[in-house]
């Protein structure tokens, strides 16, 4: 009994230590190292958006690398094909705040759709704005931002960029998929881009929703796999958004990662 209590206390301490180290990376790696490159890119780069996306990729690659070292109990199985995806729309189920960071660490040229409120955050909002991320709504200043980025999206895709989106809009629990927001399917249809479908599991066990600290002690496997692609349908001008959504949902349902999901 006493021994179990000691193990629980120790586990809690390790969880806090890992969390603090990750925050140290977030703050100090940015301030002492990456911020200089962001400033240089902002002042000198001919394509700020592309440079910022590459820096975001490197920053989160470092973060995920550190996390993997600090949490050896969790195994990571990331499908190698994901990092090779280019010029596509990527949709993925959403389990934890770690999910976008994993995708940023894998994709050097990527954009995503972000909750509008994040654009108001100091520094962070500016970084996302220069990186070309799209706001989820088009009210006020965000209307201009959305028009600008959506109109440039064709060139972005042709240049090999990917737009990754969590169509559920928020983190899901269990294997059930929430209702999808349709914006991403509209963009796929508008630009005739393939929709790569990724399945993700267990990031919520490492960083549970509603908690501040990582759960570092439990052994399991974090997986991200390419489970399918909708390609031919988006090439058709007349495909309906509802059909695209249905096809993507079917890919999720057929995957072993979502067996039984509605």
């Amino acid at each position: 009994m006493e021994e179990n209590r000691e193990i629980t206390v120790l586990a809690g301490l390790v969880n806090w230590a890992v969390t603090i180290l990750c925050w140290v990376y977030f703050i100090f790696a940015f301030l002492l190292f990456f911020s200089w490159f962001y400033i240089l890119a902002f002042c000198l780069s001919r394509n700020r958006e592309r440079s910022f996306q590459y820096l975001n990729h490197q920053f989160f690659k470092g973060f995920l690398g550190l996390l993997r070292v600090l949490v050896p109990a969790r195994q990571w199985r990331i499908d190698q094909r994901i990092a090779k995806i280019r010029g596509s729309i990527i949709v993925c189920n959403h389990r934890s705040y770690l999910d976008p960071l994993i995708l940023l660490s894998l994709l050097p040229r990527s954009k995503t759709i972000v909750k509008t409120i994040f654009f108001k955050a100091p520094v962070f909002g500016w970084l996302m704005s220069v990186s070309g991320y799209l706001p989820a709504t088009s009210d006020g200043k965000n209307g201009a931002r959305m028009i600008k980025h959506l109109e440039n999206m064709g060139t972005f895709f042709e240049d090999g960029g990917n737009l990754f989106v969590f169509p559920e809009g928020t983190r899901s629990r269990g294997t059930d998929l929430r209702v999808f927001y349709r914006g991403v399917f509209k963009i796929a249809r508008m630009y005739h881009r393939p929709i790569e479908v990724l399945g993700l599991s267990n990031t919520d066990k490492l960083f549970p929703p509603g908690k501040f600290v990582f759960e570092t002690w439990k052994q399991d496997i974090i997986r991200m796999e390419r489970i399918g692609c909708v390609n031919s349908a988006v090439r058709t001008r007349r495909v309906s958004v509802a059909d695209l959504e249905k096809e993507v949902r079917q890919i999720f349902q057929k995957s072993s990662m979502f067996a039984g999901a509605l």
Binding site: T137, S138, G143, A144, I147, K186, I187, M190
Partner: peptide, 27 residues
């Protein structure tokens, strides 16, 4: 009908009218 649809519709209106709509008008 959301803002993404609105942007797609504006492109179709441009095609229909035969001239470009300015950024300010789009906003």
């Amino acid at each position: 009908f959301d803002s993404i649809d609105a942007i797609e519709l504006l492109a179709k209106i441009e095609e229909m009218l035969g001239f470009q709509i300015s950024r300010k008008e789009k906003e």
